[in-house]
């Protein structure tokens, strides 16, 4: 029987057993990776391509979210050499003017560059536009289902979600010889 998990901004999840991962995307991007031989997959949900500093949630940034997703899939039994991708989000949901209006495009450009650098083919994508997207990803089969949301309710949900995230810190550092954290 499949399990279900919902992820939010900064979320990364991969599972060795069949799981439906759900998320809601506005300008954020969610990348689904799947190893069709091991039947292992996972998804992330990030806000910006690069950035982060002390005290910020590193997994909100694509460069960390992608690396951690690949690591989680390998830990679950996948092989990075077999991974294929599906990409969603990157919409202009919020009526933002100025430099932030370029965020969706930057997110999508980042994903293209990252996946090309890592040699991971993109099987399908549903990106851009002005609609928020509900995404359901089945980790065992690699199938993804997308529902586009229209109107003000979608914008309200995305705005509420973006405010609700509690940022976790960067990973820890442990030096064994000194038996201490730095």
């Amino acid at each position: 029987m499949s399990g279900e998990i919902r992820i939010y901004i900064g979320g990364v999840h991969a599972s060795p057993s069949p799981t439906v991962i759900k998320t809601l995307l506005g300008s954020c991007v969610g990348v689904c990776l799947h190893d069709p031989i091991a039947r292992v997959g996972g998804m992330n949900h990030f806000m910006l391509p690069h950035g982060g500093g002390p005290g910020e949630d590193a997994l909100r940034f694509g460069v960390h979210a992608m690396d951690c997703l690949i690591g989680a899939i390998m830990k679950a039994g996948g092989d990075r050499r077999r991974l294929v991708a599906k990409v969603f989000g990157g919409a202009h949901v919020l009526a933002i003017k100025g430099p932030l209006s370029a965020v969706p495009r930057k997110n999508l450009d980042f994903v293209d560059e990252f996946l090309a650098a890592e040699g991971i083919p993109v099987l399908s994508s549903d990106v851009g536009g002005h609609c928020a997207r509900h995404v359901h990803f089945h980790t065992g089969t690699g199938r993804a289902f997308v529902k586009r949301l229209q109107g003000t309710r979608a914008r309200a949900v995305v705005e509420k979600q973006s405010r609700a995230v509690v940022p976790p810190p960067y990973g820890s550092v442990t030096l064994f010889d000194e038996n201490e954290r730095v």
Binding site: P54, F61, Y170, G171, V173, L175, D177
Partner: peptide
């Protein structure tokens, strides 16, 4: 025999 263990994501300054 590792000297230390850093968990990703990592902070460049750290």
């Amino acid at each position: 025999g590792a000297t230390g263990w850093l968990v990703k994501p990592f902070d460049p300054e750290q």
